Every structure is written in structure tokens, then in C-alpha cells.
Simulated assay, not measured.
Amino acid sequence: MKWIASVFGVGFLKPGPGTWGSAVALPLAWGIHQVGGFWLLLNVTIFVFLTGYIAVQRLTAGQAHSDPGWIVIDEVAGQWVALFPVSYGATMMSIDVLRLWPGWIAAFVLFRLFDIRKPWLVGRADRHGGPLGVMLDDIVAGVFAAVGVVVLGTLYHVVLI
């Protein structure tokens, strides 16, 4: 379970294990997208969320601190949610997902910003505590980042082009 929660040991990298978890999520998302596009990424994200929830539940049972820094499976799931607009857009346009590279950068930066700062609903989910709080705050941060990616993409295509 520790290998799942730490994403094969990535969570033990220092400094900033959450950022390392988000960074490793990027090539994983690319590979998943290459194999099956957005729909596979969506399904694998759901699977990782559920698997992460179970791993966190088992690893933190009876502990005072339910979100140790080395648990980064939540960052992977949240980062993938942040990448949904990029993957969906590439799938719908039948283009190489790397052509949308600004979206990758925006998704990473925005997700890390929302995950670290924990504004509004992200913080509320984090305060929920337990395994659900561990996993859910990153999903909410991913949703906020995904909305930001869509807004930035729209601004670029509507205003700048």
C-alpha cells in the first residue's frame, strides 16, 4: 500500500513531495492519453482516486495525522483532473496532445497553486479530514485548475488570435 500511496516512492523525494507527485503525473497522463485518449484518462483517474482512497484509509488508520507528505497519489489524481480540458480538446480535435503544451503548463502551475494555497472549497475539502479529505482536496484543486485552463485557453483563442 505504501508504494501505491507514494506513487512508487516518488512521495519520498525532497523537497516538495507534492510537486514531485504532480510532476510525475504529467508523463503518466501523456502515456495514458496516447493509449486511449481522454476517456481512458478519465477512467484511470477514477480508478486511481478509488485506489488512493483505499490505500490512504489503510495506511492512516488509527494515526493522528491522516495526510503525511509522502502520500502523493492524491496529487496524481488531482493533476490528471487539471489536465482533462487538454486531453479532451486533443481527443476531440484528433491532434497530438503535446500540441496543446501551454495547457499542460497552465494545468501544472494552476493545480500546484490551488493545492498549496487551498482556497475556498479546496480548503473545505482538506478540512474534511480522513482519507476522503486527503483525496478530495486535490480533486477540487484539479477542478479549479481545469476551469483555469479552460478560461486561459478561451482568452488565448478569442482575445489573442
Rank of each mutant, 00 (worst) to 15 (best):
D137N: 07
S94Q: 15
L40H: 04
L113G: 06
V158I: 12
Q63I: 11
W70V: 02
Q34W: 08
A82I: 02
A90W: 10
G11R: 01
G16A: 12
T60E: 11
A25T: 05
L100A: 10
G37V: 06
L26S: 01
V7Q: 02
G130M: 13
A29E: 04
V35E: 12
T154Q: 14
I139S: 10
W120M: 12
V24N: 02
L83Y: 05
D67S: 06
V24P: 05
R112V: 00
H128R: 15
A90Q: 11
L110P: 06
T45S: 12
G78M: 05
D115Y: 08
A141I: 13
A64S: 09
I4T: 14
H65E: 07
D126C: 10
T154N: 13
V151R: 14
D67C: 12
F38R: 01
S22N: 03
K118F: 10
A146E: 01
P85K: 07
M92C: 09
D137A: 07
N43H: 02
V81K: 06
L26D: 00
V109Y: 04
L42C: 10
H65N: 13
A90D: 09
P131Y: 12
L121E: 07
V48C: 06
D126F: 09
L40I: 00
I46P: 08
R124N: 03
L160M: 11
R124V: 06
M1D: 14
R117M: 15
Q79W: 10
R58Q: 11
S87Y: 07
A64W: 07
P119I: 15
A145Q: 04
V7P: 04
T19S: 14
V7R: 01
G129Q: 14
H128D: 07
P131Q: 11
L41R: 04
A29Q: 14
A146I: 08
W39N: 03
R99N: 11
G123W: 13
L100F: 03
T51E: 07
P68A: 14
F114K: 05
G123L: 10
P131T: 12
M135E: 00
V151S: 15
Y88C: 04
R58L: 11
V140P: 06
W30E: 00
I139D: 08
I46A: 15
V109T: 15
V97D: 05
W3F: 15
V149Y: 02
N43D: 03
T45Q: 03
V44K: 05
I71V: 11
I32S: 00
V35Q: 09
I4G: 01
M1V: 15
L41Q: 06
P17K: 02
V151N: 15
Y53R: 10
V7G: 05
Y156G: 09
Y53V: 09
L50M: 13
S6D: 12
I105F: 13
V86C: 13
A146R: 05
A25S: 11
F108Q: 02
V10R: 01
